[in-house]
Design a protein around this nucleic acid. Sequence first.
DNA 1: CGTGTTGTTGACTCAATTCAAGAAGTGTGG
DNA 2: CCACACTTCTTGAATTGAGTCAACAACACG
Lengths: 228, 228
Amino acid sequence: MSDDLFVIRRAALFANLLPEDLRLLLKNARIIRFKAHEQIFAAGAQAAALYFLVSGSVRLFSLSSQGDEKVIEVIMPDATFAEGVVFLGGRYPVHAAAVTDSEVVELATHHFSSILANNHDMAMRMLAGLSTRVHQLIQDVASLTLETAGQRVAGYLLSQCSPTCGNEAIHMVIPKNVVASRIGVKAETFSRVLATLRGRELIRVTGNDIHVLDRDALMRWRDGVERT
Amino acid sequence: MSDDLFVIRRAALFANLLPEDLRLLLKNARIIRFKAHEQIFAAGAQAAALYFLVSGSVRLFSLSSQGDEKVIEVIMPDATFAEGVVFLGGRYPVHAAAVTDSEVVELATHHFSSILANNHDMAMRMLAGLSTRVHQLIQDVASLTLETAGQRVAGYLLSQCSPTCGNEAIHMVIPKNVVASRIGVKAETFSRVLATLRGRELIRVTGNDIHVLDRDALMRWRDGVERT
DNA sequence: CGTGTTGTTGACTCAATTCAAGAAGTGTGG
DNA sequence: CCACACTTCTTGAATTGAGTCAACAACACG
């Protein structure tokens, strides 16, 4: 049962946790499905749980006195939400509702907090996970503002084949348009970049697999700004 | 002495801490000045401290066996670095060196960890701070990829006058070019956007003060994509 | 009163998006 | 097995947002 709940490791908060930590946390966790527009929690309510979004999308918003709504944030899959307020033990500052049909993992505050209170190391691993994520995101912001689309694509390819360290193929599990948006380019641009890289024989594309043929050249291409 | 050390609150990690928390943490803290290119710590060394950068800039990098250097990250003021490894209690995975003359606050690992171990609430406040920062950064990434420069500028102005909730002036303490780069536009573009907003009488600029004349119109301008 | 810094404005360029059409691959049912 | 619809991907042409380069204005400061 709690085995597929391990998806929560994709959230920075849980990324560094040990299997036993996760098992403990997930003891009382449950998956809840919300239909589009269904409310998940209301602003002002005592924060009873934090959430991990498995699929779908969730809107955090507040309502003005006139009743019009201001969207604060849109949560996408693999992210946690309402965790901040759980750490501080207060009330939800915003409303949350599903935008599209969504699946969430719900972790009860009292359970979560009491585990954390008795497990200092786990708290440290969470801090480490979040702080890694902060650094990653700062990198992303930097790369969005001062790298070209081509450089970001090259960087992505390198990051994907870096662990296998050489001439292995990158198998694209996720559709290319999703990868494209992940690195901040349109699908068309992504396609074009792959085309020029293919032309320069830095990579070979076969179906959903991308082979990096010349890692060093690709790195040079990413760093230098050669045209043609 | 430890009073000006309170600048560390600018880091997400410390943003939520109580004054007494900070005082406790800063007991053994010290400010260290590094000249450009001076080493701060070496990869492989036991992580003895975490750092907060007050001014200057710091380079985190690793060295390949061939001796060439790969820059992992460039730390800018108000950020912490090496905090992740301190939470996990290991060795520094990278080298750190000042790029330009820099001031850092150094917090010794053993001191930091022992305080945190005895102060569960403080750990929770740190988690809350980091998680807020993560959400902020995700917002920033979103706004960089799917808003225009004009929208970001408008959003910035609104965020600055939102608390004072109306017709107060925003006093720009920081130079405009810094603000510009903060929101991901060139200084010239920033200037141009202010010019068009001035032309439309949504704002008035006098020296370093910017008055938002019509909040609602500015919001509409940010959301809608009207030209001219 | 020059000298340096910061901000403004104009003309030009280019990277990346948009729009649009077509190719390639995937699955369904007759 | 083919025909059909459907999604994903690729490619082309036109457009544009924002950056670059460069000149200049506005100001501060010694």
